[in-house]
Write a protein that binds this DNA or RNA. Structure first.
Lengths: 211, 211
DNA sequence: AAAGGATGTTGACACTGTGAACTTCAAGTG
DNA sequence: CACTTGAAGTTCACAGTGTCAACATCCTTT
């Protein structure tokens, strides 16, 4: 049995993950621009250049953090779906869960501003050729799943899927970013109202005649 | 008459503006992160710290560039309105111009990616206490104006203005950012289709029963 | 047991934002 | 008109960053 903290082994053992986690923490504190290679290495207790054994460059680390953020977002959406307990009415349930997904999206953005911005940072998506997690579920997947439920419930014509996807994703994504940026001065109450109103409005656009 | 280019006067004369313009150029080339104090000063032909006589810090310069970008965007929207020649039918015209504004928004974002991202950069809106241009018109103003036209034409209940504003702004803003980020691989044709479809869908949400 | 490759470390370089002290110049005051 | 004074630019300096090259250490495989 090797003592847990002997004196610090020369090899960290799980540096890549540790760096990503440090990066996540930095992103949570100050957004994508706060992800700094040297600081991440410092927090992990390792020399700056050790990171280059696991990431080609800083953007590569940012990309990894962004992917982590994306799956966190997806998880939050799924959790919110699970909190909606079925009422038996398939149509009502389909719409309620779809709405819940949108709400979870915005709430995650507000709760985890730094992570959310990192998830959609330009540099993150730029250095794309990074190895992707196998079982990673993306926010798009969760949304698509909900739209399919709407189709199955007969609320949405299958032919309108693509357009509906764009409207739903665009409006919720835009809403989140506006609340984080130009509308950041709004009170919690006002924000809440905006979110509810916008989600209803999206519903009106998505499902003509049914809300 | 002082010769236009004697030998370079010690005092630049219009440094603030020159720096902002250099900043705009940098932003156009590489987004908000590419706005670099020293490079801007270099391009203007002045020492790095000269900038500090006009801007408290780098974020202050970014803010100035962002404001310039915002008015550029607003101008593009207004131009697109003007390209819509009235057809006599007030309702049709109101909707057509509203739609044109949305389209101009997205097209500006695609055409001037760097500027657009700078306009909505976090650091830009953070250092807010900068002196604002007097006659500056904002994108929000243009949008509001179009919504009022919709109300005047009897297409939109005045009570729904706030909600409509949020839906329109959110969806168009989100659409633009998605096209620039996660959907950047789309072909020009696909993008176009997305934009048209989403705008129509927004119209459906905004004006129930009328498109 | 020795080789070899993966993993960390040190040292160095160019670049950035920013503060302090100095210089130049235009404008107003006695 | 000489002379001060304050705005606008400059130089020097420092800490912090990403990244490269060369070196050190350790696990693994033969």
């Amino acid at each position: 049995m090797t003592p847990a903290t002997s004196v610090k082994p020369y090899h960290h053992g799980d540096l890549r993950n540790a760096l990503v986690e440090a990066g996540v923490e930095l992103a949570r504190e100050g957004g994508p621009a706060a992800i700094v290679l040297r600081e991440a290495a410092r927090r992990v207790g390792v020399s700056p250049n050790a990171a280059y054994r696991h990431f080609d460059s800083l953007p590569a680390l940012v990309t990894a953090v962004a992917q982590r953020a994306l799956t966190d977002l997806a998880k939050a959406m799924q959790t919110e779906i699970r909190r909606c307990r079925p009422s038996g009415d398939e149509q009502a349930d389909a719409w309620r869960t779809a709405r819940a997904v949108g709400k979870a999206y915005v709430e995650f953005a507000l709760r985890e501003q730094g992570l959310f911005q990192t998830a959609f940072d330009r540099r993150a998506h730029a250095a794309a050729s990074d190895h992707i997690e196998p079982g990673a579920v993306s926010p798009q997947d969760v949304l698509t799943e909900r739209l399919e439920a709407l189709v199955a419930a007969g609320l949405l014509p299958a032919a309108d899927m693509a357009a509906a996807r764009m409207l739903a994703w665009s409006s919720v994504h835009g809403l989140a970013l506006l609340l984080l940026g130009p509308l950041e001065h709004l009170s919690r109450r006002e924000r809440k109202a905006m979110v509810e109103a916008t989600l209803d409005q999206v519903g009106a656009g998505l499902l003509p005649g049914r809300t």
